[in-house]
Design a protein around this nucleic acid. Structure first.
Lengths: 236, 236
DNA sequence: ATGTGATTTGTACTATCGTACAAAAAATCA
DNA sequence: TGATTTTTTGTACGATAGTACAAATCACAT
């Protein structure tokens, strides 16, 4: 939408550059950073390997640009959604709205820059698992603000739950979200075809519902640490 | 334990072989498969690169052996824990016991083969994210049985929740578990030091409590699909 | 101690990696 | 159109990858 700006950006002829970015995003998201060569990317984009060097200098630079391109619009969109969610009156409904505002943009398909999108979210999941340095840096300095904003919003809806628990549970949420995008087929397989792990709408609803319940769980204060230790025999 | 068998296995002098396996497990789990070279592994194990080839033939063979070594004892142990959990009378307590039986072994430290252990679990998380072929094959044929057993056990404690929902929620559980092992520092960072993401006991308690609540969430039947669609403006 | 098989070492081969760079092609503007 | 800049191509270089293999070394039964 926001397009006809004719800025002084280097977007003179974005065809090849954009194709390379898209191909790299897809390949990195499915195979990891190190498993994909610059030549793989060039071939998938219908470009020459040297063209990648020309546009992005290095392979790291290419990854960095993928992040750069997404992070700005994405955080903006998330702020909007969060602000709207925070205006919901009913406390229970507000919690669900906040969670949904966090979850939904991660599942959008296509090249939805603003929402983040499933492809970029999956990319982040994979980079996180690989401990990629470039990703780690840009993520810590770009996403933590947003994460804190969401955590605060959730905490406002659940004043009786300590912040520590909220942090843990939001961490679990992100893990579940990532994993749903990384291995959707596992859901189809384990449900014996009754559920479709690749159906974004189902994933969102299931994740929102489960997560809201998780956030609403009673506080886990260390006052009663060894409430019960069931099962676990002592065989080493 | 089962050791002095003097079988015809090639376990005559396991020192170096074991060192290589341990080093590879650690390096793969933290950096991914492709980012780690055979030379890296050999160096970390104090071995010669050729020694890796001698014991495991190929790099894939080395990864395969890591899985092979863990899967048997691990599934055995999980079955034991699950069986014990299923003997818990109270339905609510049983659910928690089953979840704990699933979660706890994944966080054990050291070279605990039977439990699975944090290192191997993290390795599985990373391989899953990278879409590693070797791992994908062995996982589908080794873990699905156990997963089904746990899903069935949880379903028994929650008869009113459709199996589909149980599958989704158990999928979220595994994702949260993986992510907790992959990026524990994020918890410490977001909680501003109030929580320690690397503390296994805390992680287990938090994860069990949150997950039990998630499983207990009301069923999400498609009878009421558009219960409410809060927030989300329609800007594409 | 000595011979034998198992293991470790050292090294080399080929393939592919990321990247550099000059030449060709395309695009832009006077 | 011709000049100039931007983009694409083709190719090459050094580094490192996985793996193979012969020689050296070790463990140990005889």
């Amino acid at each position: 939408m926001i397009r006809n700006a004719a800025s002084k950006e280097t977007a003179r002829k974005p065809n090849m550059r954009e194709a390379i970015l898209a191909a790299a995003e897809e390949l990195f998201a499915t195979n990891g950073f190190n498993a994909v060569s610059v030549r793989d990317i060039a071939q998938a984009a219908g470009a020459n390997p040297g063209s990648v060097t020309y546009h992005f200098k290095t392979k790291d630079g290419l990854l960095l640009e993928i992040y750069r391109r997404h992070c700005g619009p994405m955080n903006l969109r998330r702020s909007e959604l969060l602000a709207a969610a925070k205006r919901v009156r009913d406390l229970q409904d507000r919690l669900e709205a906040v969670v949904r505002a966090y979850v939904a943009p991660a599942f959008t398909s296509g090249s939805d820059l603003a929402g983040g999108g499933a492809r970029f979210t999956r990319l982040r999941a994979v980079m996180s698992a690989e401990g990629n340095e470039v990703a780690r840096k840009i993520i810590a300095q770009t996403f933590d603000d947003t994460s804190h904003a969401f955590i605060d919003a959730i905490h406002d809806s659940l004043p009786h739950v300590p912040r520590t628990d909220i942090v843990w549970r939001s961490h679990f949420l992100l893990g579940a979200l990532y994993y749903s995008l990384v291995t959707p087929d596992r859901v189809s397989r384990l449900s014996r075809g009754e559920a479709d792990g690749n159906d974004a709408a189902s994933a969102i609803e299931q994740l929102v519902q489960a997560t809201v319940a998780a956030f609403q769980a009673p506080a886990l204060d260390q006052a009663a640490p060894a409430r019960r230790r069931p099962v676990v025999s002592s065989k080493t």
